[in-house]
Design a protein around this nucleic acid. Sequence first.
DNA 1: CAACGATACGGAACCATGTTCCGCTTTGGC
DNA 2: GCCAAAGCGGAACATGGTTCCGTATCGTTG
Lengths: 197, 197
Amino acid sequence: MGNDDEDAGQAAQPKRKDARRNKETLLDAAASVFVTSGVEAPVRDIAAKASVGLGTIYRHFPTRADLIVAVYRHQVDACAEAGPALLASSETPHAALGQWINLFVDFLVTKHGLAAVLQSDNAGFDTLHAYFLDRLVPVCAQLLEAAADAGEIRSGLKAYELMRGVGNLCIGAESDPDYDARRLVELLIAGLRQPQR
Amino acid sequence: MGNDDEDAGQAAQPKRKDARRNKETLLDAAASVFVTSGVEAPVRDIAAKASVGLGTIYRHFPTRADLIVAVYRHQVDACAEAGPALLASSETPHAALGQWINLFVDFLVTKHGLAAVLQSDNAGFDTLHAYFLDRLVPVCAQLLEAAADAGEIRSGLKAYELMRGVGNLCIGAESDPDYDARRLVELLIAGLRQPQR
DNA sequence: CAACGATACGGAACCATGTTCCGCTTTGGC
DNA sequence: GCCAAAGCGGAACATGGTTCCGTATCGTTG
């Protein structure tokens, strides 16, 4: 860890500089295509955008999922790191949890189609699944535990479940003006509160 | 309406008896394949199971979504009809709402992959979308309104949103033992309650 | 009951996508 | 400048939805 790469099964930094350059180009192209066409954009589109062959994509990113992880890694990391910070700076653990979940929801809703792909149980998206969960579940668990210890929420809900639930609620939120994922997530978090104390 | 067909854009009953027979065979085969391989099973598998050509499937059901609708229509209808009944027989509107949502969740969780396909924004699944929403949203709206009138829940949440949220929460629930959609939906419904009165 | 038009059938073919493979090109150390 | 290694492009393959059309079947009519 600390190499700017290699953290989640990504291929290590290539040796040849053209390869390194191509990888950057690809990351940029992918990010750009994801913004305009969504995360489910065809690999060919990304290759075209980067003026690169398909082989090149697949050498750098063994799978579509790896590419997605690479593009969003920084933001996921940022979200993960925000957890402890919020816990430290918030009035109550429950408040921190709420704010952190909001961060996560904003992230998901902002990336066209990410939430959907995140739940896809198609083999090949394991990397994606794994990265998000490895990175975020522990943070969520910490927040949840703090809130539970403070007696603010019912206990017994695993962090994993909450993350999945929230992720699920975000599916399709960006393409349907009549569906407000944020509100539903708020309701969910509200339902998590201890009935009264 | 009342013809046992034609209610949701399905092709009307074919004239020739072999055609009619094939349609039944197909429905049975599809139902059976859906149970074992999930709703996302390839059309070809269903054709094979029914010992029928691909053309036959597509003549009877213009799209995969139409086939799915046809297979589950009765159950969706039953769910829709249970709404008013529950409202009449339950202590409070909120209880009725809770029970009705449970019915819906059980239905979704039981049908491998249905929840996922229900949210798919791929063109071609409009029929599916439309049928579920047309049938269930009004019922949900009625329950919601009754509960709101009774002052049991916060108002302002549209039935459509609730249905989508619940549907979303059910995605992947059947293939992941660590994810309990029912509990999360309960939490959501709990969050819907009026804070206190 | 044979003929015939309408209806339905089967499945090859087409399109889109993810992924693999391999002959050719570029790079970088000598 | 030369060469092996590293990398590249994109044709080809697999899968899955959907379309098309030549052929088979049905049922009506003479």
